[in-house]
């Protein structure tokens, strides 16, 4: 599609679609995590020091040691940091204002990035508890998690 400002300046422009039509295998560790999403389960992986990474990594981020000990973790957790997006960008998880957050799930020692559907920025704070909201039909991809939502007050 010609860009109007370019056209005014007398510069020609043309559409250009870039694609990489490759098929890739996700491997046994990420594959297990994505397979878990299909069944509405969340998996992490245990490191030699006992701590648990979610999402799981194939190799220890500090030592490079291969990791294999996959374990299921909780479906709720704590927001460790967040930002409020008043105007969501194209393709982001929610089309209405939402928070991005790093979420440390119960049983995990690292945090997962996802959206929190909190309604208003005033409802967000570091340390708040949130719970996963699953998509109606899962497909084995990160989008099976629609977002997280604040847990009801106890």
């Amino acid at each position: 599609m010609p860009n109007s400002s370019d056209s005014e300046a007398g510069v020609l422009s043309a559409p250009h679609v870039l694609e990489y039509p490759y098929t890739r295998s996700v491997g046994p560790i990420i594959g297990h995590f994505l397979g878990g999403l299909l069944e509405r389960k969340l998996f992490g992986i245990r490191r030699p020091d006992g701590s648990v990474l979610v999402p799981p990594a194939e190799y220890d981020p500090d030592t490079g040691e291969a990791l294999t000990d996959l374990i299921e973790v909780g479906q709720a957790g704590v927001v460790t940091t967040w930002t409020w997006i008043a105007e969501p960008r194209p393709n982001q998880p929610l089309a209405r204002p939402f928070a991005w957050a790093l979420i440390q799930l119960d049983g995990a020692d690292s945090a997962l990035l996802h959206a929190v559907d909190a309604g208003d920025e005033a409802n967000m704070h570091t340390g708040m508890r949130v719970r996963v909201r699953w998509r109606d039909e899962t497909a084995g991809e990160i989008g099976d998690i629609v977002c997280f939502e604040p847990e009801a007050a106890p």
Binding site: I30, F33, P55, W100, A115
Partner: peptide
């Protein structure tokens, strides 16, 4: 590309 990029965090 599996757990983060599909969410398009800017």
């Amino acid at each position: 590309p599996y757990c983060v990029a599909p969410l398009w965090p800017d």
